[in-house]
Design a protein around this nucleic acid. Sequence first.
DNA 1: ATAACCGTTTAGACTTAATCTAATTTACGT
DNA 2: ACGTAAATTAGATTAAGTCTAAACGGTTAT
Lengths: 147, 147
Amino acid sequence: MPRNDKQVRLWVEGQLRAAGLKVTPQRYAVLDYLWSNRTHPTAEEIEAAVNQRFPCASRATVYNTLHALHEAGLVQELYGQGGVTRYDIKVEPHHHFICRRCGLIEDVKVERLSVKARLPLQSGHRVEELDVVIRGLCAKCRKIAEG
Amino acid sequence: MPRNDKQVRLWVEGQLRAAGLKVTPQRYAVLDYLWSNRTHPTAEEIEAAVNQRFPCASRATVYNTLHALHEAGLVQELYGQGGVTRYDIKVEPHHHFICRRCGLIEDVKVERLSVKARLPLQSGHRVEELDVVIRGLCAKCRKIAEG
DNA sequence: ATAACCGTTTAGACTTAATCTAATTTACGT
DNA sequence: ACGTAAATTAGATTAAGTCTAAACGGTTAT
């Protein structure tokens, strides 16, 4: 696990290469941003962030990159109410809590939630990942809703 | 659990009233359709289906109704790739398998997948539901992908 | 050097799921 | 029946995400 800037650079570049992707400034910027910001950003937020210092990535490229990273298993896509996809770097497995009122997303450590499956689930289907989303009201919205 | 048409009618009306919703033809049609078709339809598919015999529900009403039914806990919303929400009547708890290639959605019986949580997950958050989505490739797409 | 090559990026048009609005209609308790 | 709050409507609007065809870049061969 990288500890300083140089190590992060090497880690990001290594991950891209390992996924069979050329290391371009745009891809580097997106993956580096996701490494540093575990805030479940939208594609739009990522685009704005990586272009803040100086424009380098178009919208199409941000989407292309995110799809490639997802395909490569480096990034998780989070689908929720409103049809806006959020992105999350896959460093260690975890689940998510999503508030149905304000949209807050919080990580849930796997230790708190044990999932036991009897595989195979359906004949012939290949299970690749298991997304668990806990939905409800966050503390803040709970207070508002309960009055 | 309703067994014939009359019982279904009474069940649907009862569910609507219990949720504090007036029984309108549009709402009746939507909930009845979801009762009879456990195919995880989109709002568009539902709109087309309930208007097939004779037009009765506008798009806005279909969405309003689905939101109301979801709010009331009668219907589950399924969010996936593509940003198209799918709807599923909540009759008995189950999970879902979704093929990342063709989008196939299949129910997974809870017996096959047990989720155990250590509550409370986060201080103050109210847990309302737990969505488990198994993602991967269905048998068909698996064959195509593996060549 | 130069050329050819293939994957990547780009701007901007396009698609479409879902929302919004303001006027009209309807369900249902009294 | 009546009154009213709730529900419905058509159509305009929004915005997330995709598509397209041209340009770019870096690699390898000549």
